[in-house]
Each structure stands twice: as structure tokens, then as C-alpha cells.
Design a protein around this nucleic acid. Structure first.
Lengths: 226, 226
DNA sequence: AACGATAAACTTGTATACTAGTCAACGGAA
DNA sequence: TTCCGTTGACTAGTATACAAGTTTATCGTT
């Protein structure tokens, strides 16, 4: 009878949160879309309270914008917020990578290598969605290797801001190859304990989104509020 | 008529949140203390809903632990959570410091220097509380100098975890001097653009809490849950 | 006296009703 | 036609009532 008292059953609020989170980050709900507590409550067949709580959590993640007595809207993109999110994500992941380069959990090595191979396969088969999943998992494994698994929660929360925007960009095979090679180079640097090199590669890797974001800003200015 | 639509009046929930946050971080409410939505609602003269929202926000900050159908308690200290918070805080502030050392907002220079002088005065007058406030403000100014003011919100949120614990330690004049000298050295390195040196000083600075935390763990094991 | 079952007194989660504030559309006046 | 004020349909915040589950105390049995 292990893990007593740790049973947190999923509550109505969780269901609403998960569904809305999915819809917002996958752009099923576009930035600026008005969204009403009452309507959502009706569509889920629950009362307004669980919805309110879900809204509150989404607002904390900067995915919703609650304007008292006015309305709640899917938060428009904000270059400021995106820059902030990227700053934090970079800060945390750089520290993760530095940790790995100095003292990593070698038990994760195999998983990292396997993940890298799967990335290559995904690219060869041009499976974009699969590659994205593996990319996500790759960065998660880095945190595990640093024995700072929790850090990926921070990274993921900040990634969400950017990923939502990048849904508007289509990923070419060439772009995937570039990312894959970054991963490859990073892993080599880490396994060799080259802290400075790993730091540099990760910065380059994270900066690759900049032109994409700029491009989306010009083509989809309506979704931005700054 | 500037800044229209940005008026967010303080809600009942905010009042409850602020008061509880204060009481928890200042250890007026000790770790493990049971705290009931109903009781708090009564004492504030509001209904349970605003209290629930405040609880939810405090739980997100790892200051409360809500156990459904059981009770809500002031979150006990956790060495794991403290380590996590320190990791993130360090990661973000290191990136801030690196940014400052490369390209800072010189408009903040005067405020930083003035703050440093006030720290010296506070130590001379042995005003511990004032010194802590200035310390807080010093790190906030660093973020401003990096033009990443928002980053201090992240730092502060993670600091809260640790500060709450450190309320149990009394600060000696000698300890303040050490911290002051760190600040001094850090500022010199930053103004000279010595990125590596600044990085090193900040790491040392943030690591100074380790023995304090370890000591509190042995003397107050009852407040910990691991 | 020690132990176990039962019930009462808690807890948080959810539903419904009400309050106060915002916005937009409509209608009348200039 | 244009402008302004009124009105009604929205919004989120709050209060209260109920539901479901846990803990604790009490009472009966061994």
C-alpha cells in the first residue's frame, strides 16, 4: 500500500483546464477570441465555479486575459511577453545544460542517444509532428540528466507561449535538419564536458526562432497587441 | 486621460491573498498549520469563494498545500522544493547578471550605487530589517539594469520559499558585511564588463545560504516534510 | 481496559442566485 | 445626418446552499 494520501483525482476544473489549454496552445482558439465563463460552463455541463478556476490558472500562464466586468479573451500574442518567456526559458535551460556538462546522470545517456536516432528517422520519414514530440522529449531528457526534472515544467510553461505562435509557421525538412544537428552537436559537447561549447550551441539553438517569430509578426499582426 | 482600461481594482480575493502571503512568509503562520477556508472567510468577513481563489494562488506558489476533503495546511519546508527554487532563482539571476555585464541600462547605475551606500549605512546602524529591504531592492535594480524588470517577479517568487525559512535565522552584523561585500564586488565586475567574474561572484553569493539552510534543517526538522 | 464500528463534525468541490459594472444598440433631439 | 443619453443585455465578483469524502470522537462489545 504505497503512496497513500497522494491520490489527487481529476476535478471538473482540471478537465476544463486541460481542454482549454489544448485548444489555446493548438490555436483551435485564436488570440483575441472572446470566451465566456457561462458559455464554457454550459458546453462542459458544469457550473461556473470550476470554469472560473480553470480561467484563473490559464490567466496565470498568460494564455487568457481576464478583464473584470468586460470579458475574458484568449490572450493575443505579445512580443514583450514572448521575449520574457524566451529569456526565462533560456536562463533555466542554460543552467540545466551547464549542470549536465559538469555532472550528468549517465543513466539517461542511452535515452538521449535513442531519442536522437529517432529524430533522424522522423526527419527521413518527414514526420513533422513526431519530430516535434521528440524535440520536446529531448529537452525533457536534458533536465532529467541534470537531475532537475522539475526544471522542465518551467521550460514547458514558457515554451507554450512561443509554441502557440509557431503553430502558424510550417516546419520544413531543412529546418528540422538544422535543429537536429544542433541537438547532435549539443549532446557531443555535453558528453565531452565542454561547458562553454554547450552553452554556445544552446544559445544558437534557442535563437533560431527569432526570424520565425519576426516573420509571423509581420504576417499576422492582427494577433498581436504590441 | 491616459491608461484607460488598466484600472484593476483590488478585489476581496486580493486582500485575503496579500494578508495570508504576508503571514506565511513572515512565519506568523508556521509550516504545518491547518487553515480552513471557512475560518479565514469568517475572519475576513467575506464568503468562501474569494478565499478559495486566494488559497489556489498561494498553493501555486507552494506556500499552501490543499488536500481535498482533508484540510489545507501551510506548506511545510521541503528541501527538494527549496533546492528547486534556488536552482531557478540562480538560473534567472545569472542570466540577468550576464546581460548586465554585456549591455546594461546605465540610467540605473546611480540607483545601484546609491543603494549600495545605503546598505553600508544600514549595516553601520545595525538596522537588519532595512538592510534586508535594500538587499531585495538591489537585486531588483539588477533586473532593471538588464532591462528585464519582469525577471525579478520570478526571482522574488522563488526567493519567497527560501526567505520564509531564513526568518528562523538571525542575521549577524558580520553576515551582513559579507553580503554587502558581495554586492560591492559584483557591481564592480558588472561595471567593468567582467562577465565571468560577475557570474562567479553571484554564484558564491547565492551559495552563502547553504549552511544556514542546513543548520535550520537540523534545528527545526519538525517544520520539514523531507 | 482494549478494540472496533458507527455517527457526527469537520474538510474541500460544485451548483445556483445575486450584485455591480461595462458595453453596445437604439431612439430622440439638434 | 449627427450627436448624446438612456436602456437592456452582457460581463466577472461574491454570497449562500448543497454534495461528497475524511477525520475524529463516542459508544457498544469483547
Amino acid at each position: 500500500m504505497a503512496a497513500l494520501g497522494t491520490l489527487d483525482r481529476t476535478t471538473s476544473s482540471d478537465v476544463v483546464f486541460d481542454e482549454l489549454y489544448e485548444q489555446i496552445t493548438r490555436l483551435k482558439l485564436l488570440p483575441g477570441t472572446k470566451i465566456s465563463e457561462t458559455d464554457v460552463a454550459k458546453s462542459f455541463g458544469v457550473s461556473r465555479q470550476p470554469v472560473r478556476e480553470a480561467f484563473s490558472r490559464l490567466a496565470n500562464l498568460n494564455l487568457l486575459l481576464v478583464r473584470p466586468q468586460r470579458a475574458t479573451v484568449v490572450r493575443p500574442f505579445s512580443r514583450q511577453l514572448i521575449a520574457n518567456a524566451r529569456f526565462v526559458r533560456a536562463a533555466v535551460e542554460l543552467e540545466v545544460v551547464r549542470t549536465v556538462s559538469r555532472d550528468r546522470d549517465t543513466a539517461v545517456d542511452a535515452a538521449l542517444k535513442a531519442n536522437l536516432r529517432e529524430q533522424a528517422d522522423a526527419i527521413a520519414a518527414e514526420k513533422v509532428s513526431l519530430f516535434h514530440d521528440l524535440d520536446y522529449r529531448f529537452h525533457e531528457l536534458l533536465c532529467a540528466s541534470a537531475k532537475q526534472a522539475f526544471a522542465f515544467d518551467i521550460i514547458a510553461a514558457n515554451k507554450a507561449q512561443v509554441d502557440r505562435l509557431c503553430m502558424l509557421a510550417l516546419t520544413s525538412k531543412e529546418a528540422m535538419v538544422v535543429l537536429y544537428e544542433d541537438h547532435q552537436t549539443l549532446l557531443e559537447a555535453l558528453f565531452d564536458g565542454q561547458t562553454g561549447r554547450a552553452d554556445e550551441v544552446l544559445r544558437t539553438h534557442l535563437d533560431r526562432l527569432t526570424p520565425t517569430i519576426d516573420a509571423i509578426y509581420t504576417t499576422h499582426k492582427a494577433y498581436f497587441d504590441d
